[in-house]
Design a protein around this nucleic acid. Sequence first.
DNA 1: TTGACAAATCAACGACCGTTGATACATACT
DNA 2: AGTATGTATCAACGGTCGTTGATTTGTCAA
Lengths: 108, 108
Amino acid sequence: MHLTMSDLQQASRLFQALSDETRLRIVRTLAGGERCVCELQEPLDAYQSRLSFHLKKLKEAGLVSDRKEGRWVFYALRPDALEELRGFLTDLEEEVPSPGCSVDGCCA
Amino acid sequence: MHLTMSDLQQASRLFQALSDETRLRIVRTLAGGERCVCELQEPLDAYQSRLSFHLKKLKEAGLVSDRKEGRWVFYALRPDALEELRGFLTDLEEEVPSPGCSVDGCCA
DNA sequence: TTGACAAATCAACGACCGTTGATACATACT
DNA sequence: AGTATGTATCAACGGTCGTTGATTTGTCAA
């Protein structure tokens, strides 16, 4: 009975950020270590403006961090964000279908 | 080195289904046991057509199942779908930033 | 058969999303 | 100074999404 991230709004934001295939490919690549935008361009076969757009979305959701170095901007995955989501799913799975759950407000 | 659900398209479909706050509230409620549409209406304060719309989305994504009984249709959470997603996130977190990862095709 | 109820579907609308190509900005090099 | 490079931003477009209200389909009861 925790469901720590009862803030469904935040959860939906995270899910939304991961709801795009291009962004998932970015995330999967960043799981191998930080990358600058130009390093993503070739393997993902995407225009630079497109990558900037998606990286901004991921950053706004808190899923990646960015670090400026010279003319490059390196993006990295934020493991705690993934952990947060995983915890949310775990809490959902642990929610047991209790018989008296139809009581007012229980599932509101 | 598993990343079983390497099918990013399927992953994005699941994330997309969970990217809406109304749907997350439905899912959280269904975690307490199956419900028919009319039982969701009051606690979620939503029109019936709206709930039907979102339940259809959840069903299409494989996150819920439905069971007809008389005039009612009972929806229930499918735990395996949540498990699938959790596994995907776990695999992502386990992906170690190995030094030689910049090799061609490694993260493509 | 008539009425009541549960659920799905539809049309319409506004809002947001993802892509592309062009442009702007910042940094580095000569 | 000028030029090249990496990145962000912009305008424009087409497409999809979520909501509402009305209609339709199916099921039960009187």
